[in-house]
Each structure stands twice: as C-alpha cells, then as structure tokens.
Design a protein around this nucleic acid. Sequence first.
DNA 1: ATAGGGTTAG
Length: 612
Amino acid sequence: MKNAKRRVKALGKKKKGFEVLETVSHGGMAYLDTLLQRRSSLSLSHSHFKQLHSHLLTTGIFHLRPTSATKLIELIAISPSAADLSYALQIFPYIQFPSTNDWNAVLRGLAQSPKPTEAISWFRTMSRAAGARPDALTCSFALKACARALARNEAVQLHSQVVRFGFGSDMLLKTTLLDVYAKVGDIDCARKVFDEMCKRDIASWNALIIGLAQGNRPNEAIAMFNRMRDELGGFKPNEVTVLGALSACSQLGAFREGEEIHEYILMEKLDGNVIVCNAVIDMYGKCGFVEKAYEVFSSMKCKRNIVTWNTMIMAFAMDGNARKALELFGEMRESGGVQPDAVSYLGALCGCNHGGLVDEGVRLFYSMVEFGLEPNVKHYGSVVDLMGRAGRLEEAYEIINSMPTSPDVVLWQTLLGASKTYGNVEMAEIASQKLMEMGSSSCGDFVLLSNVYAAHKRWDDVGRVREAMKKRDVRKIPGFSYTEVEGVIHKFVNGDQSHKKWREIYGKIDEIQLKMRGFGYVASTNNVLHDIGEEEKENALSHHSEKLAVAFGLISTSEGTPIQVIKNLRICGDCHMVIKLISKIFNREIIVRDRARFHRFKDGLCSCKDYW
DNA sequence: ATAGGGTTAG
C-alpha cells in the first residue's frame, strides 16, 4: 500500500499521467486521493480524465464520495485544455448538491481558458441556480474573467454585485476590481477605487501603476510611482512596481526618471530579477541610450533569457545598428545557449530594415522557415517594407500573396507607401483597392493614392479619390510628441496651442523658417492633401508636433544641450528635412524616436542616412 | 491549501 502510494507520487512527478492512472485503476480510493492531492504536478490528457471518470463510476466512488467528483472537476479545471473543460461541464450535473467550491472550480477554469466570456455566462448560471451561494472567491474569478474578456460593462455590473453580496470591504477584491478596471481600459474608475480605499497595500499600488502604464497614461504612472516611493510610512516599490514605472519611462523616453528608477533598483538590489533587468535594458534602449542598455546587458548578475536577447537586439535595430543586431542574433545561440525565436528574427529583420541591408534581410526571412519557425504578419510586414524601400515592389506584392493567413491593413499600407515613393501607379491602385475593400478610413491611405495620381498629373483621379474620401468618415490618427525639459515631460499635438508658451514656440518656428530659407529650404508639401493652397499646406506642416517639440526644446534649453523627442507616428519627410537643417543652423544634436526607430540629427545629417 | 501585480514585437 505504501509502496503503491510512493509509486503514484513518483510517476506524478515525472508527469506520466497514463501510468498513474493504471496504478490507480488497480488500486482504490487511497491511490485516488494521492493522485488528486498531487494533481497540480500531473499532466493528464483528456482521455485520462475519461478513464478516471469511468473508473469512478464503475467502482461507485463517484456516488459514494461526492468530493471525488469535485476533485475531478478541480483537476480538470486547472488544466489548460478546452476539451477537458467541456468535459468538466458535462460531469458537473452529476454532482447532486454542488457546493460553492464546485462552482468556483469550474469558474476558475473557464476564467483562465481562452474563452473567458464563458466564465461570465457560467457566473450568471450560478447566480440563478437554486442553492448556489457565490462567495468572495466566486467574484474574484468572475472579475478576472471580465479583465481577460475586456468586458467593461460586465465588470461594472459585477462591482455592484460585489457590494450587494457584502464583500465591498474585502481588500483583495478591491484590488482585483482596481486591476480589472485598469485592464478593461477604464483608468478613471480604477483610480476611483484606489482613492476610495482607506487601506492600501503594495498590490493595490502596483495594480494602479501598471494599469496607468499600460493604459497610455505613462505620466500618471510615474507620478504615482514617485508618490509611492516618497510617501511617509508608505510601501516600498518592489519588482513589479518598478516594471510598471520603467514601462512608463520607455513610452515617454523619460531617461532621467528611468535612470533614477535604475538607481533605485540597484540600491534595493532588485537587479537579481531577469524581468527587471530586461525592462531596464528596454528603457535605456527606448530612451536612446543604446550604450547604457548594452552596459546593463553585458554586466547582468542574473542569467539572460530569450527576452533579454530579443530586447537588446531590438534596441540595436531601433538605433539603426544592423551590424550589432545581427552580431547578437548570432551570439545568442553560440555563447548564450538560447535558440532564437520568432521575436528574435523580427528584431534581426528590423535591424536589416533600418540598416538598409536588403539582401541580408530577405535571406534571414527565408532562413526562418528553414529553422522551423513560421513567420507571422509582423515578419511579413518587415520584409515587405524592406523590399518596398529597395523598390522591389513586384516581389513585395508576391510575398503578400504568398501569405498563408490573410494580409492586414498595415501590409497594404506599407506597399502603398512604397508605391508612392517609386511612383508606381499600378501597384498603388492594387494596394488602395485592397485597403478600400477592408474599409480603411485612414486619411493617409487616401492622401498617398491621391499623391501618386497627382505626380502623374491624373487630376480626374485625384478628384475621384477626394470624393471617395468625403463619402467615408475619414479619420486622422492624431500625431503627438513628447520632450523632456528639466525633468518635466511636455506633450504636443499637431497644431497645438494649449502649451503655456505656445506663442513663443510659434514665434521660434517662424524664425526657423526664415533662417532655413537662407539655406534654400522649400517645404516638401507633397505629403499633404492637394486640396488646399500651397501656403496653407506649408502651415499645416510647420506645426507638426515634432516641430513644436523641437522649437520648445530650442527656447527652453541652453545651447549645446541635445534635444530629445518621442513621436507616436512616423516622422514625415518635411520634418525630417527641417530637423536636419535645425541641427546645423542651431548647432544642436536632436534625437527623435519615431514609431519605428531613432533618428539622430547632427550637423545637418541624420543617422538613418535618409533611409527610413 | 484554491483570490491581486510583471519583460521583447511591423
């Protein structure tokens, strides 16, 4: 008997589900208990459950011991397979008087499954069922399901139910609620829950900071982090807190804040955690300090993982340093003992893209398949961009057509952009046709096509595009830029007049334009829709958010200080040219991180060599 | 021994 138990344990450890089952079938209840107690370390397949179930039925254990049914359900509920879950739902009716635990076990399983909405329906079924009494755990699981299903309305409903059930003062549930609100994108509600909490713990702080960082409110995330760190008698930020704060810094390009957090990490010895180190590397990379990122990467105390390598590769790629990106890509396997994955390939491809290594990139793309990895839409995006920039439009088009999955909007936009660059009307028409079929309402798509026609003086077609635009509710993604001055992040949107010093900023732009004319500058207005006058076009361009940010940097920092700008979209041709000139005329180093990469402007030149 | 938080991506 003892031996048999030991055997079950040993097999369980080795994850030999089937052998365990055999032993149990020939044993009895004692073995069964051992098995169920060790359930989390087992890996049992769907058929194992079925066998176990029939065993329970034939031996009568199922009816004699209702706990066995419960345990079976629990066992199934923690396993990730959807088939097992549906099986759990099948046997659930056999439980005569399901306890709260039984309901919860299934709810938990569903909440963790790929279909969290089913957990929400399950919760509704439970609420209606006679004799079922939801407890705090029930609510917790259901809330988690809402978070995963991004179901805001359900979360609000659940919130009121939580209060009605009398769990309104449960600390953990409040934190869960906070987290759910943050995850479904309702940061204001999350803050409200946070502010209403009379007692807070480190988690509640973390949930809010992470929620803010991931909810596009990085400024507030950093403010909360500082408040938490400095609050008297407060909680010390831990690994998870610094991750939220670092992610916010990466988004904002807030290197001073980021550096402070790095110092805090070293002081509190949080750098033994790989994930924290990865986030630090990412932060320095995204703030434009690749060397610092590499320094951290090289001197890590803990073991690097695949994400560490990928983050570093991507940091070099973003900086346009294809050589270093590819070098690391090779090194990770040789000396790092880590096999490159799909993200590593993407990083290396991205490096080739920004470094202009067309053939190398294409080769890499095909070698990926040989390596046994399936390219996803982002790899296709990268390689189409790569070919498009090199003018290999037909090839890019063929690649899109060869995709096993259906191409998305971004791919056609990339092809359209390349067609515009090379003035290829045919390809531009194909790409726009696809975009229209997909219901594009992005202003840029129409502008590009219209510009291709305009370049060929096909004015009828230009008019046709404009008509189509009117019919559709065309939206422009608002462009914005950040820049940091004396530790304060300033945000600008296109044509912004909300900044305290906007008059000075606009005055500086006028001055810049005047000076630039002396250098023979003419605004490159061909990125603007051709339905406004030339002067208006120039104005529309001259107040792009990155220009405002640079102008603000010029008036608020001393000569010689580098200006750093983070932009959410790709930099436009005119801004690129203007900033090059500014770097020469005002003798300033200007670093712009756009959606795709870093541009370092110095002495009238850019590190991207005008290839982006 | 069942409840909350985490890193890379066109």
